[in-house]
Design a protein around this nucleic acid. Structure first.
Lengths: 243, 243
DNA sequence: TCTTGACTCTCACGTAACGTGAGGCCGCAC
DNA sequence: GTGCGGCCTCACGTTACGTGAGAGTCAAGA
């Protein structure tokens, strides 16, 4: 009956000595005995058990579950297999969602040549926030629409916003009538800008409204639009003749 | 200039108070100051930084990298994006390999009704070992071939092995000539069993030979074939007329 | 004014699966 | 006897916090 020392057993199964120590501490694999000097000694039975452990570990099982399986019997192993498949599937789905988000961000860098950190972080935050309020289908619609518009038109739209916001802000501060011709002109430009983004999709526009209302602080900080201005602009747009 | 306490900041960004403590300990986000009672106080700047942190964390970045990005500048962020995409991709590939292995094992359970733990673990070990010696294409060939054979034929083959091995072992022990008629009959059955597995593929047969040689101990334990018997059987098969 | 409840503080251990020394004993060969 | 390799037992480090424990702080109601 052959007995192995730690390193012999480790070589035979392709794991480290430290791992064997760890398994003993966890009660996962106890040596058959000790030599006079206190060296761990393992027999055939322990070798077999270790091979089982290594196999299950190679399938990604946590040690606690491995111990449960080996100390119990077959049905628990079958259950564990199902659980592990589920765990893995969920993990993969999460990772893939993450990856697609990341790749979208990475494309910003690739497209936008030398984008600065502030802008990039803002974009990331914008998309993160948007993913909380838009369904995946809506996100896809928005992206498709953006692609159709082209990078140049998008930049043009983004550059027009500050002027329109400032104009509307000034009009509100001066107490001008939302139905007045001057404010109506601003409202038309505002509506056009919103439509450039929503593509005319009513669902997207509603979700955008929700997003604005629930993140008033952040929106004010990033766009300069506070709830009062938003209401003023909306009332001005409501007074526009149906296009 | 508004100041926030921990819980106010936490609510605003959807993270926990403990996490803020942690970020301070890590030097990732320091409060703007403390109140007389020692309460942490954060300002607008800290809120913005925390939003950046949360965004990057949502993309799966490790905290150390987030700190590096925020304390450095844009190029480091762009690099980090690339690194993170790589990391994720590799992780997904690993997980998917794991999943496919696991699903193969799970199918054993599904097919074999009430399989016992010992048998299942043996199967797992066998496939784990095989994946070390066969290329993915070879594994696929083996699986295809197995499917073509059908579960019943496979079981028949598995049941025939022990008798053939025992017979060959006995013949060797009695010192019979590998070229004798009796041993030649055993050799024909042996060769047929091997071909049932390899499907006649020379590459697979070579890989199997390597696997046997490099795992003589384990093979002896599982199949009862030791190197001497293997050599004897091979010489007997070599004496067979080319079919 | 006292008390209650919500909030905050600082330790400090727990998590998964080991890696990586530190300091010291054991065994065999020269 | 003296190397050198193998073995032993602590015990801390890793990741990103969770979860109390024990104690001080703040605003409000009885």
């Amino acid at each position: 009956m052959p007995l192995f020392t730690v390193s012999q057993l480790a070589r035979r199964t392709g794991i480290t000595v430290r791992t064997l120590h760890h398994y003993e501490a966890e009660g996962l694999l106890l040596p058959a005995g000790r030599s006079d000097a206190g060296y761990r000694l393992y027999g055939r039975e322990e070798l077999a058990r270790l091979q089982h452990i290594v196999s299950l570990k190679a399938l990604g099982f946590p040690l606690a579950e491995i111990r449960a399986c080996l100390d119990a019997d077959a049905p628990s192993l079958a259950d564990a297999l199902v659980r592990q498949v589920d765990r893995l599937r969920q993990g993969i789905v999460r990772q893939q969602n993450l990856l697609s988000r990341l790749e979208r961000v990475a494309r910003l860098v690739a497209d936008g040549e030398a984008i600065d950190a502030e802008t990039l972080l803002s974009s990331i935050e914008a998309t993160t926030l948007m993913e909380k309020y838009f369904t995946p289908e809506q996100m896809q619609t928005i992206r498709d629409h953006g692609a159709a518009l082209g990078a140049e038109r998008i930049r043009a739209v983004e550059e027009e916003w500050p002027g329109v916001i400032a104009g509307m802000q000034a009009a509100m501060a001066l107490g001008k009538d939302p139905a007045s011709e001057e404010v109506q002109a601003l409202a038309r430009r505002w509506r056009a800008l919103v439509r450039a983004f929503t593509g005319g999709d009513a669902g997207i526009q509603r979700s955008m409204g929700t997003m604005y209302r629930e993140n008033a602080d952040e929106m004010r900080a990033k766009t300069g639009i506070d709830p009062a201005l938003m209401e003023y602009a909306c009332s001005a747009i409501a007074s526009l003749p149906k296009d």
